[in-house]
Design a protein around this nucleic acid. Structure first.
Lengths: 226, 226
DNA sequence: AAGGTGATGGCACTCAGTACCCTTGATTAT
DNA sequence: ATAATCAAGGGTACTGAGTGCCATCACCTT
């Protein structure tokens, strides 16, 4: 039933356009009552994203069951890969949907809501698991946004290419970039050497050729400063 | 006219809720014709974000006129600060709007569209100015998303607090975190201490409390290893 | 057989948004 | 001064999404 509605809807959307298709067109093609459409999809836009509710549930379950002592950023990247798997499972459908969402402003807006829910799930996980760290909430929001952006960048490049090529590898590379950018880095000192008072680690940068006595003096200062 | 519509709309939205207010309610309170509402606002949601079109135009102009030899990331952060200035210019209005968008799903979706346009503007600038770099498009999307997330994190913390406190400082700190995360980095050391053979800089990590003799030994090794 | 239950269809309604046309008032050309 | 023009607003009627309510039907229980 759901499926026949989705198929009828896509046939019409691709044929005459999203806005030129009414709910009555869909239900008459699918051979069901108009009222039943809204039993399965809360809005006309939702029929374009029929699998995202399930995918979000899958993602939240995955995050909930992930080990508490693992790397939260890596877990969130794996969660993004779950979404990718859904897209990759039906490339033709994904490409058609992508073209629709590119053209129809209403669908683009709806897709943003869908993506937003994923992002909030990721950020919530990072917030819980990364607790204790200073600026944990900020970090959670930023990393979640970056992971989603990287995932979508690779995914959309693949979709624009018509679903040809290795999405998996592209997403891995994009997520790798994000993971590297947010890898534990105690400090990105500008010039000399700095102590981050909130962390358990001291970082010292020295230009090659720096006299050892100066390095030792700075290390000593940094380590003693706690 | 625009302004009287906005004031009437907000009075009703805050009083009886967004969905419980019809366009007719708004125009009759404002004393204008129903048709005129849609001359000023393309949809009911848009009346809640009356100033974002102008702010987006201001942002694009700012980015267009920014020096070509400057740091694109810093420019994009400054562009985000333009948006913040708009919110901070009328704290009461911003807080009221925030509470509305938190409660009403339709407004939340619309806000996502608004934010999305800002993010695309930032990403477009980064893509143009950061050209040449490997993975420039990916980096542009990720950095833009991170900047927007950081901005929104600080902004919403302030809005949740009722508009009390120093937003400017909070956003500066959040953007600083992003800028640091994506700053050119010599090495993303893993655990102990690493030498990047291609760079002129040595990075050494040490846990607090590490005996100094061990630190010195490692520094010596690293500096001498060239 | 009687009654309950869940899925579906039909009908009527509200309301956002649009197309089309009218009014008004100010400005300008002749 | 009068006519032409044009911009700004108003009014009316329409489409179509989404909702509430009720009827229907199949299936299942007792």
């Amino acid at each position: 039933m759901r499926d026949s509605l989705v198929r009828a809807a896509f046939r019409l959307f691709l044929d005459r356009g999203f806005e030129q298709t009414t709910i009555d067109d869909i239900v008459s093609l699918a051979g069901v009552g108009r009222r039943s459409f809204f039993r399965y999809f809360p809005s006309k836009e939702d029929v374009v994203f029929p699998d995202h509710d399930g995918c979000l549930a899958e993602m939240t379950a995955f995050l909930r069951d992930s080990p508490a002592d693992g790397d939260p950023v890596a877990q969130v990247c794996d969660a993004a890969r779950l979404v990718l798997r859904m897209y990759a499972a039906d490339p033709l459908f994904s490409v058609q949907r992508y073209r629709l969402t590119r053209e129809v402003p209403g669908l683009r807006a709806h897709e943003l809501s869908v993506v937003w829910r994923y992002e909030r799930a990721l950020a919530g996980h990072l917030r819980e698991r990364g607790a204790g760290r200073a600026d944990g909430a900020l970090r959670a929001d930023v990393v979640a946004a970056a992971v989603v952006a990287a995932h979508n960048h690779a995914l959309r490049t693949w979709l624009r290419a018509g679903g040809e090529g290795d999405v998996q590898a592209a997403v891995d590379e994009a997520l790798g970039y994000v993971a590297r950018s947010f890898a534990p880095r105690q400090h990105d000192a500008g010039t000399d050497g700095v102590v981050d008072a909130d962390e358990e680690v001291v970082v010292l940068l020295a230009r090659r050729g720096t006299p050892l006595w100066r390095v030792v003096r700075d290390v000593e200062g940094a380590l003693g400063e706690r």
